[in-house]
Write a protein that binds this DNA or RNA. Sequence first.
DNA 1: AATATGCTCAACCGCAGGATT
DNA 2: GAATCCTGCGGTTGAGCATAT
Length: 270
Amino acid sequence: MGRAPCCDKSKVKRGPWSPEEDNTLKNYLEKNGTGGNWIALPQKAGLRRCGKSCRLRWLNYLRPDIKHGSFTEEEDNIILTLYGQIGSRWSVIAANLQGRTDNDVKNHWNTKLKKKLLAAENYTNLSSYNSSDLNHNFSINSFSRNYSTMDSNTFTSLMDPNLTNLNLVVPEMLVQESDQLFPLQSLLEIQENGAIQLAQDQEDGYVMDFSTGISSSYNYDLVNGFDFQEKFIGADDTNYSSSFSNYSTLVQLQAHNIPDIDQTFKGFEN
DNA sequence: AATATGCTCAACCGCAGGATT
DNA sequence: GAATCCTGCGGTTGAGCATAT
């Protein structure tokens, strides 16, 4: 049969840890380690706590390699990027940030970064979407712009129109994978393929190419100074109207000319 | 100064999957 | 193979603090 229950919840202390309890747990673990059994640990260490609570306290707070304090911009960018790829797999994201725990990353996301991303998405009228494709779920799918075809001569990109090797927001692994599957076209190539320009106003606009089955669009923001390219697969919907809600997968979003992405987002907050 | 509201983050909860008996 | 437990994970909560009114 199975093992004994881990603890009697009516007999263990709950709530915030006292400095004395922290010391007891820390001293015990530094001398003895976990012994491979968190459930038995509190009794051995002389703590009236559930083993699960001890584990959490150690992993999230007492471990010597934990980094306390605010997140750097570089860490923010890593979180944003990885969240775009894999969603809320906090332990995986935390593993890419030295000294940060999944709880830390999760809290930071819920209190800071989510708002930042939502503000940016609202600005571009993109609503969130959970793609079923785990490798490419940048969580953006449906548009609600007012579309109007414009003369392509009026398009002005901030990036080199011959450029295909963009600075990417997504990490290298995904970039390589995506490049193999869906190579980037330069803006000139897109225009030569009969791209149409849509929705340019005083602040932003973009060019879209439906000729390949993989829809590409260049978006550009004249106020904040960045371009980015989006690619879609899974649908060849040339009869789009005011929404892309039927699009199945957004492959990737690639950005260029964002010297300080955090600075760019700041303008969208509140 | 008092109260309301918002924010942060440590801690808990419940579940899934693997391990153990 | 079944029953049960353990571990790790993501979601959620709520106390305490900060800021606004």
